[in-house]
Amino acid sequence: MAETLPIDRFPELPRDDQGPVFSEPWQAEAFAMTVKLHADGHFEWSEWVKYISTEIANGAPPDEVDHNAIYYRQWLSALERLVADKGLSSPPELMDRKDAWRRAYENTPHGEPVELALAGQS
């Protein structure tokens, strides 16, 4: 059970690193959107804490060892739920848009900027 594993089972955990807190750009973007939505009054921070706590309590895939990736995936799931609950978007809308971005990538010649207009018809 992940909750009781000793810290030394995770030798990759940086103990004295003061460096980057985001290992990939999407993590920083998800973080910034959350801060911005809160700053603009879309939700209280205590509300956010309930959402992220719930995701963390649900646990992580046992084979994932990158704690930053685990954490920000939980963060992103919490943000998606909160955004939907606040009526700012909805799960089907998010899913459709994600698929559109995937098609846009697939239709974009390598090296050119990826634009949503290239998603074409679904």
Binding site: E24, P25, W26, E29, A30, M33, L37, A69, Y72, R73, L76, L79, E80, V83, L88, S89, E93, L94, M95, R97, K98, A100, W101, R102, Y105, E106, N107, T108, P109, H110, G111, E112, V114, L116
Partner: peptide, 24 residues
């Protein structure tokens, strides 16, 4: 040369969320 490999699932989800919130 005709396509670009899509990024990871969470990166696509962030792009989806961000582009929708920007549009709105």
């Amino acid at each position: 040369h005709e396509h670009t490999a899509p990024p990871s699932d969470p990166a696509l989800r962030v792009k989806a969320l961000e582009s929708l919130l920007l549009e709105k």
